[in-house]
Design a protein around this nucleic acid. Sequence first.
DNA 1: GTGCGCTACCGTACGCCGTATCCATGAGAT
DNA 2: ATCTCATGGATACGGCGTACGGTAGCGCAC
Lengths: 217, 217
Amino acid sequence: MPLSRAKIAATAIRLADDHGLDGLSVRKIAKALGVGPMRLYDYVANKSELLDLMVDAVYAEIAEADQPAEWRATVLAIVHRTRAAALDHEWFADLLGARPRLGPHALAVGEATAAALSQAPGVRGIDDLQRALSVLSAFLTGALRAEVTERRTARSTGTDVTAWQTSLGPYLTRMLDTGRYPTVARLVVEGAHLDAEETFHHNLTTVLDGITRDPRR
Amino acid sequence: MPLSRAKIAATAIRLADDHGLDGLSVRKIAKALGVGPMRLYDYVANKSELLDLMVDAVYAEIAEADQPAEWRATVLAIVHRTRAAALDHEWFADLLGARPRLGPHALAVGEATAAALSQAPGVRGIDDLQRALSVLSAFLTGALRAEVTERRTARSTGTDVTAWQTSLGPYLTRMLDTGRYPTVARLVVEGAHLDAEETFHHNLTTVLDGITRDPRR
DNA sequence: GTGCGCTACCGTACGCCGTATCCATGAGAT
DNA sequence: ATCTCATGGATACGGCGTACGGTAGCGCAC
């Protein structure tokens, strides 16, 4: 079976899913494919192009068309598929926003999002649309990055509260006991029980409400 | 003059400003300080702790206290200082959201932001506060990442429109000419003249308006 | 049939990285 | 004068991305 860009990307994605972006190297991908490292460069100019390939492959998962619906439902669907993809492929969140999204599938997702947003009330012209798109994708990028980061630290310190406290506790409680961070302290002590998905959805609603508010009061 | 964590961080920051995170290595920092590479490990456990040091040093710039003011003015000031820092230190945007923000100065910024947000109308309890903080910082993270990425590609392809068109044009216009991305095409052709800072401010306003809207209609 | 150029593949090698480990030096204590 | 011990340096290891030279196979001109 001959090599191909798609096969390379698929293998790279599997490795990145298992070992993270830091654990991903051209040599390991090649070994997993049973070829010499330099073979990959027959299909790809350099490693960053390979990352672009991986990213666009994930956008392909996100792009699956759903039947046309009201703008808000469409946006919600796309955004939630993106979140699902980022949780499946945590490295995807690391790359989000770090490179121009120009692959064909990324463009398809952008097109669907833009088309839906252009139907939203409060989005009146091309400038409004451009801005709406950029707030939404900024929020999405940041929220997914944060969620993935939190997940990773939870995994590395242990999920339960006691493990977390013993690992970060000494430093953090010392910090908070200085009394210089009262509000943060309150958040740590009294907060922290919110469900991640529900928070994401709530915040997304906040952003969409901001977009659709009437800008002239 | 002996080494110190602060001196190391300052040198690392200068190098990262000049050559980016990819161009930053322990060996180069050591050389710039006129010592052997391994000396740095007397002050730092590993490279990622060094990055944490750098990040918190930037948060120190952001944390400079301003006189107490109305909540929105305070938030605007902090956010705009963060943006300024990210434009001064583009690598900072790469790291934003990628690691837990727990340094003393990062905590100080978090504290000031949380304290201000807790005064905002529509933020009614600790859960509201937690959510408001997370939308805001998700937006901030994503927006800065996007702005820095755009800036970098602009710099690498050349600033003016013609250079951009000749570098990405062939691929992009071919893509857009397929007719599969009409809305994106409109955005590319008719948009693109918006000022970055003004867009940022507008989008920030959108998010803050979303936060302060009355959630019970 | 024979020689030739071209393409497609491959292994080796270079210069870098983070960092573990061992060694030299020399100051201060006894 | 000798011992102790902190300080800084050199070396080395395993891994990285990728440049490059070689070679094996094949279509084709004569």
